[in-house]
């Protein structure tokens, strides 16, 4: 669930970030709308998202997915926007000077230049969401959070402890792998 929601959210974020970054936005008004929207999504805590979405989607995996999705969407849109704005605008001008149009500039210039930083952000977000998934699961009664809750409340502290331990190990492993990936693409 944390993987899927991060990947789907990062695809949407990328589109929004390109439309919303100062250097690549087609219109300043759109830029304002995207920044504002992302800010709202980001600043509602994931716990609140989970509880709000519970009303609409009941206790299901989809609720957990959406809660993580919205928070990630807001966060990554902001991070991606800033990554794109930090790129050297002159490099994009050079492509314009060649006669490239908007889409060609984005695909041949912005994406390759930003790719390694964007990947870094996605990896970071997956780590983060894996941890948050426990909390969201607790609230929405799904996934690993539900298991933890179940064992905890039925006094099976040994099993509950094992779950916490497993999550910690999983997060650490993920962190190590993503460090490797980052080094490989840098």
């Amino acid at each position: 669930m944390p993987f899927l929601s991060t990947i789907v959210a990062s695809l949407f974020s990328l589109v929004f970030a390109i439309l919303g970054a100062k250097t690549t936005t087609p219109s300043p008004i759109l830029r304002l709308v995207i920044r504002f929207g992302a800010s709202i999504l980001r600043n509602i805590p994931v716990v609140a998202w989970a509880m709000i979405l519970l009303f609409s989607f009941k206790q299901s995996d989809f609720t957990g997915f959406l809660a993580l999705f919205f928070m990630t969407l807001g966060y990554l849109t902001r991070a991606f926007t800033e990554t794109i704005e930090d790129l050297d605008a002159e490099k994009l001008q050079a492509l314009q000077a060649v006669g490239a149009n908007y889409f060609q500039c984005v695909f041949c210039g912005v994406l390759p230049e930003a790719a390694s930083t964007l990947t870094s952000w996605i990896l970071y977000m997956i780590e983060n969401n894996l941890r948050d998934a426990t909390l969201v699961g607790l609230l929405t009664g799904t996934g690993v959070g539900f298991l933890f809750d179940h064992y905890f409340k039925s006094f099976h502290y040994d099993a509950a402890g094992l779950i916490v331990l497993l999550i910690a190990i999983l997060v650490i492993c993920l962190e190590l792998t993503s460090n490797q990936i980052r080094r490989a693409i840098a």
């Binding site: 492509l95 060649v98 006669g99 490239a100 889409f103 060609q104 695909f107 041949c108």
Partner: peptide, 14 residues
Amino acid sequence: HGRLGAKSTLAGMF
């Protein structure tokens, strides 16, 4: 990239 100005949008993009 020097050819981008002469290519169709899609061919250039990909």
